[in-house]
Design a protein around this nucleic acid. Structure first.
Length: 307
DNA sequence: GCGACAG
DNA sequence: ATCTTGTCGC
């Protein structure tokens, strides 16, 4: 047959968001993509290695990228932060330009963090092809995200996306979509639940609390995960439904129970259990993990500059 | 037909 | 996501 064809060279363009696709085609592509995704740990990252302890101060804009240690500037003191061997965590978020003249455009912002320090920012402005449709987010925001990530020099060891990953009707949320296209470990962080069912009520939980989100009738389980045997479908009476993510209470006020949890799920090459650990390690006192919190702020800056 | 749903 | 001031509570 066709000799020496690089699978990636074929697979990558195949799943690129395309405005010409019908809804059924997009859904079909998502099923294929989910079958390609790995919902098991396939990386070298220890949650402790990506942990961020100090929240960035965003009251006066975004933090300056940490200047690389210059050749002559020896850092003999040995500060723990800024180790250039630490993994690079990239947070990404989108903002939108109001249809001033009829064409919607997305502003995508990426922030690279290493050893708790911002080392680089990148952004891209992209025309939007399709409207927002629950379940098809990747076909609206995927292209902008890829554009921003391509503009980034840093190579992500872990990608933190806004929105769901495996918590998705076809287990192919944007975190999974982008993770697979770039074949990089990724996790999805959503502020509300798209589908699936929490094991326990999420009301008024203390900081650090978590509960599994399992596939329900609305989730087509592809059972494509990399590991040994994923759980079966939700409809299987016997086996418990697959855990597709977790609700995670990243922040809570002592007495009143007002903060809603985060809904975190594997994007690609990360298990559901490790996903919560990553997110927990990346939170530094605010509801959102630092990478997305800073990406949020930078998206505003990029948006302002684009207007 | 109704419900329900990331950003 | 976006349109938006003050304001109640930690």
């Amino acid at each position: 047959m066709s000799p020496a064809v690089d699978p990636d060279a074929v697979a990558r363009p195949k799943f690129l968001p395309d405005p010409a696709l019908s809804r059924a085609e997009m859904e079909s592509l998502q099923r294929e993509l989910a079958a390609t995704a790995t919902f098991a740990d396939d990386h070298d990252l220890d949650p402790r290695a990506v942990a961020i302890d100090e929240p960035a101060d965003l009251t006066d804009g975004v933090p300056d990228p940490r200047q690389e240690t210059l050749p002559g500037t020896s850092d003999a003191g040995g500060s723990a932060a800024g180790n250039s061997d630490a993994p690079v965590v990239v947070g990404i978020d989108q903002a939108f330009l109001t249809p001033d003249d009829g064409e919607d455009r997305a502003v995508s912002a990426a922030v690279a963090i290493r050893g708790g320090d911002v080392i680089e920012y990148a952004s891209a402005v992209t025309p939007l092809s399709i409207p927002y449709v629950p379940g098809l987010l990747a076909f609206r925001e995927g292209e902008p995200m890829l554009a921003a990530l391509e503009a980034l020099d840093a190579e992500p060891d872990l990608l933190v996306c806004d929105g769901s990953g495996r918590i998705h009707f076809r287990e192919a949320g944007v975190a999974t979509h982008v993770g697979v296209l770039l074949d990089v470990p990724s996790v999805g962080v959503a502020k509300s639940l798209l589908c699936g069912t929490p094991d326990e009520s999420t009301d008024g939980r203390p900081e650090g609390w978590r509960t599994p989100i399992r596939a329900d009738e609305s989730v087509e389980t592809a059972s494509a995960g990399g590991g040994a045997g994923d759980a079966a479908d939700a409809a299987d009476g016997d086996t418990p439904a697959a855990v597709i993510g977790h609700a995670y209470q990243s922040r809570q006020y002592p007495n009143s129970r007002r903060v809603n949890p985060l809904y975190v799920s594997p994007g690609h090459r990360v298990s559901a259990a490790t996903t919560v650990e990553f997110v927990a390690a990346l939170c530094a006192g605010y509801k959102l993990p630092e990478p997305t919190r800073i990406a949020d702020a930078y998206a505003d800056v990029a948006k302002r500059d684009a207007e």
